[in-house]
């Protein structure tokens, strides 16, 4: 664990990319934690949504890229719905996911994974959603 962190400046391009494709101004966040408090998937997250925004504000993208949280966001839009600062957090987290999976070989869910999870009741919707969210 690294205790002392130096605000990195070599991740600006990734930060800029996240800003652009999400269309979100992260500086609007006042860290009220409303997003995290209402997040139904927070039990599966190592970093809470408000912490993700804080880390982005500090330029610490690496920590977010290595978190479980971004893959366990269900895009349920509760955070977006309730944010008092009009921040579309769901879009922001999607942008972070895309920043990773748009890199070659970084897809999280591949056709080879399908046999392992499929059952006869699973609606097509699940697989299509899975490929849209975790694969490029």
């Amino acid at each position: 664990m690294i205790r002392v962190k130096i605000t990195p400046n070599n991740k600006q391009s990734q930060l800029q990319y996240i800003r652009e494709i999400s269309g979100v101004n992260i500086n609007k966040c006042i860290q009220c934690t409303k997003c995290s408090a209402g997040c139904p998937a927070s039990a599966r997250m190592d970093i809470l949504p408000h912490e993700i925004i804080r880390l982005l504000q500090l330029g610490q993208v690496e920590k977010i890229f290595h978190s479980k949280s971004i893959w366990n966001c269900a895009s349920c839009f509760v955070c977006t719905e309730r944010c008092p600062r009009n921040i579309d957090i769901a879009r922001l987290i999607e942008a972070i996911r895309l920043t990773i999976i748009r890199q070659p070989g970084k897809s999280k869910f591949k056709p080879d994974d399908v046999p392992g999870i499929i059952d006869d009741k699973m609606p097509q919707q699940v697989l299509v959603s899975g490929f849209r969210k975790y694969n490029r």
Binding site: Q31, T33, S36, G38, I47, L48, H50, E51
Partner: peptide, 11 residues
């Protein structure tokens, strides 16, 4: 009441 303590990051 479902809330968050932002200092600890606990829900």
């Amino acid at each position: 009441v479902h809330g968050v303590d932002s200092f600890t990051g606990d829900t």
